[in-house]
C-alpha cells in the first residue's frame, strides 16, 4: 500500500519534471494582453474620459450656446425611486425621490464646496481665471420634474456656485426635427 502511494508520488513528480522540461511558448502572452489592455484603458478611458459614460442621463436635443470644455459636470437621473447625481470624477450621490430632508444633501454640498475650492486654488496658482471652469453643467434626464431638481439648485447655492446651466445635445446641422 505504502509502496503504491510512493510510486504515485514518483510518477507525479516525473510528469511534472517532463512538463517543466517542455518549452512553453504561450506564457508571455497573457501578460502582453494585460499590458495592452492597460495601455488602451489608460489612453482612452482614464485620461480625457467622457464624463457622460456610465451616467444614464438622456438630455433633450436643443440648439444653444456651444458648451465649452471645463465646468463642474453633474449628471442627474432617476433610478429605483432615487434621484442620482453623478459627477465627472465618478462620485455618486443619491437621495429618495420624495425626500424633503436637506440633511441628505450634505455629501453633495461638501463635494461641491471642495470642487469650488479646488478651482479657486487652481485659478490662484495659474493666475488666470475662466468662468466656464466654475460653471456647473447640469445634465438633467428628461424623466425628471422640477421638484426633483430643486435640491440640486439648493446645493449649488450652498456651495456658492452662482452660474450654472442645463446641458442639451446639439442637433446635427441639416437634420430637421
Amino acid at each position: 500500500m505504502n509502496r503504491n502511494a510512493s510510486q504515485r508520488w514518483v510518477d507525479a513528480l516525473n510528469a511534472l519534471k517532463e512538463r517543466l522540461n517542455e518549452p512553453i511558448l504561450w506564457f508571455p502572452y497573457p501578460a502582453l494582453v494585460a499590458f495592452g489592455l492597460v495601455i488602451i484603458l489608460r489612453g482612452h478611458l482614464l485620461t480625457g474620459m467622457n464624463p457622460r459614460l456610465g451616467a444614464r442621463v438622456d438630455v433633450i436635443q436643443y440648439s444653444g450656446q456651444h458648451l465649452q470644455d471645463g465646468g463642474i459636470w453633474l449628471g442627474i437621473y432617476p433610478e429605483n425611486n432615487q434621484v442620482v447625481v453623478v459627477s465627472s470624477d465618478r462620485r455618486r450621490f443619491s437621495w429618495p425621490i420624495q425626500s424633503q430632508n436637506l440633511a441628505e444633501l450634505e455629501p453633495l454640498i461638501k463635494y461641491l464646496k471642495e470642487r469650488v475650492q479646488k478651482e479657486a486654488y487652481s485659478t490662484a496658482i495659474k493666475m488666470e481665471s475662466s468662468l466656464t471652469r466654475s460653471t456647473a453643467v447640469l445634465a438633467v434626464d428628461q424623466k425628471l420634474k422640477y421638484i426633483h431638481l430643486r435640491p440640486v439648485i439648493y446645493a449649488l447655492a450652498e456651495a456658492r456656485i452662482a452660474k450654472y446651466g442645463f446641458e442639451t445635445r446639439l442637433i446635427k446641422p441639416g437634420v430637421v426635427h
Binding site: V33, G36, L37, I39, I40, L41, G43, H44, L45, G48, M49, N50, R52, L53, V59, Y62, S63, G64, Q65, H66, L67, T135, V137, I153, L156, A157, I161, A162, K163, Y164, G165, F166, E167, T168, R169, L170, K172
Partner: peptide
C-alpha cells in the same frame, strides 16, 4: 485585438456635441 479594442473604446468615449442653456443664482 488591441487595435480593435482601441477603436471600440475610442468610439465609446468620444463625446457628442453639447450646448448649454445658462441660468443664474
Amino acid at each position: 485585438l488591441m487595435i480593435y479594442l482601441s477603436y471600440t473604446l475610442r468610439a465609446i468615449s468620444m463625446a457628442g456635441r453639447y450646448a448649454l442653456i445658462e441660468a443664474e443664482i
